[in-house]
Design a protein around this nucleic acid. Structure first.
Lengths: 299, 299
DNA sequence: CTGAAAGCGCTTACAG
DNA sequence: CTGAAAGCGCTTACAG
């Protein structure tokens, strides 16, 4: 259009011109959108991380497309179609992708950061905490309290962080004379899944006197199962959670837990991703954040 | 390109052609994306509604762009820029927009549905429950239990649903001889805001013996404040929440609450919105869903 | 029925 | 420095 700059200036002032973003993005082949894939947005830790992601994307002029996969592979695949359709510039996942070569292939060379989760191989950045250390610390705390039969409520092992936390648990338990081990796997990070897992643990011949759950939500469910069995936390069974969400303060007794810097994890994930988008040649990075052990009434 | 259909067929099979979505959307002037604006994704009710929204959008080939506004007006405005940029075909809000003419103007003629919230005017569809009825029912339950001094922990009154629930509360309280009323406003739907509100209520000369909070999260905070004041729920103060999220089962004592069909509210919002997108001439609709009163230990 | 051309609304490289 | 033109990758209306 033959608009003179002067006319354009006036035009901008008067009528609040808004460029068509689709056209701009097609031309520049940059969408300024990031796909965020989580397995369950209702998990408070997920929600906190997503908040951190949003804060940082906003600062950098990006938007997020949220996919709440529910760990459903078809839904995940369909969302990844956005990548090949050039709808998004990059992807942040909190889901278990390491074990899903099909999905990994779909991502291909697209900039990708794993958040609170890790890839074994490939050129993918990640940000999280040292899950082994945190797990070992929690178990040692239970031992120091006098617990002998410590059980683990874990997420399924397609998550690398679940394998790492289990490794920490086993390392410490194997050091003990007693040689006790009991592990239940929750199908999802929900209250009901945690409750169901604890109910199974309570059926065992040798009842646990301590439980470490890999999320506060699972730990809350475990405490409910313990209560319904007529037992007391922490007198009969001590309970430790993971994540350090506000939920840990909402339940009774309040949860002893490992606090992750969830907002920061989200923010850093975005920083790493944008670095990769701006410079595709930059190598993958692994960022390890600090965690804190928070002692409350449950253990 | 001069590709014959036969060649194209082979091409599709072999190399998994993925069309560029930006180009398609520019050409068809349809983005198949919906903007979803919530004030706080960490609120479990919000998360549940968003899950319902996602289910239904997925069925219909739409995607969602999530904006977690935190009730921040600048962030909301920036997200609404996506509308004028033709990035999204419609918008679903769970935020208080009625009182924000500036934002309402930005939305203009774009298809818009309010979710669990209502507009006073304008051509905007909404889906929710009868907040007045639900609120009155809760208060009458507390009265029937023997409560006399019933307080309300409300969200701020820029939310229409907050005004409606307050109206239900006042209607019933004014029928009583005692004439008691006490209202505190929480700045956000969080545990800490609910706790703070309850602490203020406990400072009053006449202590409440019943509390109705307009969200489970607020109610959970109120119960913590009550506990820290050395009082018992429900013996000293009975507590009722709102939403019927899983959180209500996670706290101790478990919360009596009003259950909203959150998933369905989300799904219906999408249906209404798509109807409007497909047929811009269709009139606005108001959908009222059923709610259920769930009695547990807290009242 | 088939195939070449126009056009969606931008940005940018290029000619004047 | 300024302005016209090309092109991003699709879809669709139109000519052959």
């Amino acid at each position: 259009m033959g608009w003179s700059p002067i006319f354009l200036t006036g035009f901008f002032i008067v009528s609040n011109y808004q460029p068509n973003l689709l056209a701009r993005q097609l031309r520049t082949s940059r969408s300024s959108m990031i796909l965020v894939m989580v397995s369950n947005i209702a998990n408070p830790f997920c929600a906190d991380v997503v908040k951190g992601i949003e804060e940082e994307t906003e600062k950098n002029g990006y938007r997020i497309l949220l996919c709440n996969s529910g760990s459903d592979i078809e839904r995940s695949k369909s969302s990844l179609g956005l990548l090949s359709g050039k709808m998004v510039d990059g992807i942040i996942t909190m889901d278990a992708f390491s074990k899903l070569p099909e999905l990994t292939n779909m991502i291909g060379q697209t900039p990708w950061v794993q958040c609170a989760e890790y890839a074994d191989t490939g050129d993918v950045s990640c940000v999280g905490i040292s899950d082994i250390d945190a797990s070992e610390f929690a178990i040692r705390h239970l031992l120091a309290r006098g617990c002998r039969c410590i059980a683990l409520i874990n997420h399924d092992l397609s998550y690398k962080y679940a394998r790492l936390r289990e490794q920490g648990y086993k390392t410490v338990m194997l050091e003990q004379e007693h040689g006790y081990q009991a592990i239940e796997y929750a199908s999802e990070l929900s209250f009901s899944a945690g409750k169901a897992a604890m109910e199974k643990l309570l059926q065992a011949a040798e009842r646990p006197d301590g439980v470490f759950a890999v999320s506060d939500t699972l730990a809350a469910g475990a405490m409910r199962a313990i209560g319904e069995a007529g037992l007391k936390v922490p007198q009969d069974i001590a309970v430790i959670g993971f994540d350090g969400t506000e939920l840990a303060e909402m339940v009774s007794p309040q949860l002893t837990t490992i606090e992750q810097p969830s907002r920061d994890i989200g923010r850093q994930a975005v920083s790493l991703l944008i670095k990769k988008i701006d410079n595709p040649e930059s190598p993958a990075e692994r960022l390890m954040m600090d965690w804190h052990f928070i002692v409350r009434a449950s253990a």
